[in-house]
Amino acid sequence: MNAFLNALGGKLAERWLALLAVPGLIYLMTAAVAVTLGRRHWHDAGRLRARLDALSGAPGAHSPGTVVLAALAVLAGAAATGAAVQAVGTWLEKAWLTASRGPVTTWLTRRRLRRWQAADSAYRTALVAAGRATIAGADDADRLTGEAERLHAARDRVALAAPRHPFWTGDRVTAPERRVWRAYRLDLAAAWPHLWLLAPDGARAELTAARAAFTSAARLLAWSAAYLALGAWWWPAAVIGLLTAVTAVGRGRDAAESFADLTEALADLHTKPLAETLGIPCESGLTREVGAALTRALSKGGE
């Protein structure tokens, strides 16, 4: 038991340092530089050295007790800063995934829906033209087919289905639920706990890692906002914040896509074993009839 508690304490301390203390300490150091240099002296290294010399020459700097208290105060401030930014990251993560509620998110959703509808209309028009050219044996059939494929990819970059969320990540993460329903008439929300229990450890580990990567990206976006705020005193901090924001958004999109793909793959691979476990005949493979029967069984008779 003692060994277990020691190992657990070591892991908690390591996680605390990685998530809160170290990022918070770096941020506090950047904030100190920003306040010391300001906008007018943003690159004045001499000014920074003079400030450090003044601190090191202060009487309290040679007192062990003062140094320890100062170090503890800095660590506490770093941890508090990290906790605050982590809370903002949790809010941003929910905002990435939440459906429209207020006027701003509703406007964003409608804007994305108009873009998707225009892209979908262009794709369908090009697809019909390519089909007619292929049937007629026209010389430009290959070109029209390529144009239809390009427009299809352009539509999917907006969303795989008609948008219902203000941000791409929300639609991407919820796309498997809608696609599985259209394909199999299976309510993925009702089936998910059962599919999760049937999935092997490797599949669950991959999904957990993708979800953790998405959370990490949201946390990184929160740190970018904190550095952008420092840009009001020291403009290099705004550059750091902007670069961090671009990285965070890219990582968030990649993680959302990975999580959605893995979710849909798990549903495709393990819905048949789930049906067989529940005694629903599935000899011919997963069909809409099987999916509808699973939905009725898992929703306890409700629709």
Rank of each mutant, 00 (worst) to 15 (best):
R211M: 13
A210S: 10
L195N: 08
P200N: 07
T208S: 09
T208K: 09
D187C: 09
H194G: 00
P200L: 02
P200M: 00
A190Y: 12
R185I: 06
R204Q: 00
A213F: 14
E206T: 08
E206I: 02
T208F: 05
L186G: 09
P193M: 08
A205H: 13
A203W: 06
L188R: 13
A209H: 11
L197A: 14
L207A: 04
A212L: 15
L195T: 03
G202N: 08
P200S: 02
D187E: 12
R211L: 13
E206G: 03
A210V: 05
P193D: 03
A210E: 12
A191R: 01
D187F: 10
G202K: 06
R204D: 00
A210G: 07
R211Y: 14
R204M: 00
A212Q: 15
P200D: 07
L207R: 14
D187K: 13
A205F: 06
A210W: 12
H194T: 00
A205C: 09
A213N: 11
W196S: 10
R185G: 07
W196R: 10
D201E: 13
A199K: 02
A209R: 12
A203V: 00
L186E: 03
Y184E: 15
L207T: 00
R211P: 02
H194A: 02
L197K: 11
D201G: 02
T208V: 03
P193G: 02
R204K: 10
A190D: 10
L188D: 12
L186V: 02
H194E: 13
L188T: 08
Y184M: 07
L197E: 14
T208M: 10
A190K: 11
D201V: 01
W192V: 02
H194W: 08
T208W: 09
A190N: 11
R204L: 00
A191C: 06
R204I: 00
R185L: 15
A189I: 13
L186Y: 15
A213G: 08
A203Q: 07
D201A: 08
Y184N: 10
A191I: 00
L188M: 13
A209Q: 11
Y184G: 09
A203F: 01
L198P: 09
L207E: 09
A209D: 12
Y184H: 15
L188N: 12
A203D: 03
A213K: 10
E206C: 04
H194S: 01
A191G: 04
R185F: 07
A212P: 13
A205Y: 10
A190L: 11
W196L: 01
L197G: 01
A213D: 15
H194C: 00
G202D: 13
R211Q: 15
G202E: 05
L207I: 08
L188G: 10
L198Y: 07
D187P: 14
R185V: 04
L188V: 09
T208Y: 05
L198E: 04
A213I: 06
W192P: 06
A210R: 10
D201L: 04
E206Q: 12
L186M: 11
A212F: 12
A190S: 11
L186W: 14
G202V: 04
A212H: 15
L195A: 05
R211A: 11
A205S: 14
A212T: 15
A205P: 07
L197D: 11
A199R: 06
